[in-house]
């Protein structure tokens, strides 16, 4: 039986809860599961030690994990983790580090996996317009999408072994321009409200921001909006040439539902569409469609949310 090695996902220096989803993904592939926690302080591995179905927890301690250099991450992890199939979360950083780890070990990598049956792994291709199933022989590196696999339960008390590691850091951060707003990025939000060209002007995105602030959502945009208005940055773009997202709730406002956009958000758990055109393709993908102008619908939506949550 092969070793399954789960690399815990770090978010703001702590273990991201989706790490528990990686453990069930690893169990779906079969084998003995080891969780590796990259850290600067081994105490963050304590939460992982209670995961069920894990035979070993290794906290890999290194300064490199405070930074962003993928070479540093990959070399430090490589020195500390045993041979086997490696699973990580399909985030920008982990996909990068996973790619380096795979290359370092002469393995292949399968990214963005959403379904596992033994050694058969399925990922969306063409940004979700179709699925591709591959069969893997031998060890590989596998990145798994968040919010797809169930999290394993906790209750166990696994021992945590701590390993010190060093890595080969090649790049240097000069400065970080911090995000002006505290609002989440679309790639990390559980709720997203996005606007399209139907918003009429970039200034009208303030109405989306107001809703976002009420429910802790990120604000996104369609490609049409990003291409039309300089004020709407590409970092907000959801779609095939923007970000692919799968939040619990996606609210599309003034977005017709071009195939490009649908590709980036169709796997959202629930989709709400607000559009004045009853024939807009977005309604075919919406769980709840509201045929109305955003000027009519958003104030009512906002009030109802404030009453419910306020």
């Amino acid at each position: 039986m092969t070793n399954m090695i789960v690399i815990a996902e770090l978010t703001k220096g702590n273990v991201n809860p989706s790490t528990a989803e990686l453990v069930s993904a690893a169990k779906a592939m079969g084998g003995d599961v080891t969780v590796v926690v990259p850290c600067t302080d081994a105490s963050i591995a304590d939460g992982v030690s209670s995961y069920d179905g894990v035979s070993k927890v290794i906290a890999v301690k290194s300064d490199v994990f405070a930074g962003n250099d993928s070479s540093g991450w990959a070399t430090a992890l490589d020195s500390a983790i045993p041979a086997g199939t490696i699973l990580c979360l399909a985030t920008a950083r982990s996909k990068d580090v996973g790619s380096r780890l795979a290359a370092r070990r002469g393995l292949s990598i399968v990214q963005d996996v959403v379904s596992i049956e033994g050694s058969n792994l399925t990922s969306p291709i063409y940004s979700g317009k179709a699925n591709q199933t591959v069969s893997v022989s031998g060890d590989a590196v596998v990145s798994v999408r968040a919010n797809v696999f169930p999290a394993v339960a906790s209750g166990s008390s696994n021992e945590v072994s701590v390993v010190d590691a060093s890595g080969d850091v090649k790049t240097a951060v000069q400065e970080v321009m911090h995000r002006a707003s505290a609002r989440l990025d679309v790639s990390e939000a559980n709720i997203i409200i996005s606007g399209g060209r139907g918003m009429g002007s970039p200034a009208n995105f303030t109405h989306l921001e107001a809703v976002a602030d009420t429910i802790g959502a990120a604000v996104g945009a369609s490609r049409a909006a990003v291409d039309t208005w300089d004020e709407i940055p590409h970092s907000m773009q959801v779609g095939q040439t923007g970000k692919t997202v799968n939040p619990n709730l996606y609210i599309a406002v003034g977005i017709s539902g071009a195939i490009q956009h649908l590709a980036g958000m169709r796997s959202s758990k629930y989709i709400v569409a607000i559009n004045k055109d009853a024939d807009a393709p977005i309604f075919q993908h919406a769980d709840y469609g509201i045929v109305a102008t955003w000027e009519e619908a958003l104030p009512v939506f906002q009030d109802a949310l404030s009453n419910l949550l306020g």
């Binding site: 317009k129 893997v136 169709r266 509201i290 045929v291 000027e295």
Partner: peptide
Amino acid sequence: SVVVSNHSMPAAKPAGKTFEGG
């Protein structure tokens, strides 16, 4: 060592509920 075995279309979503008016 990784070989494509098949492609498939994503499962169609069941029809949602549509409402008229803001």
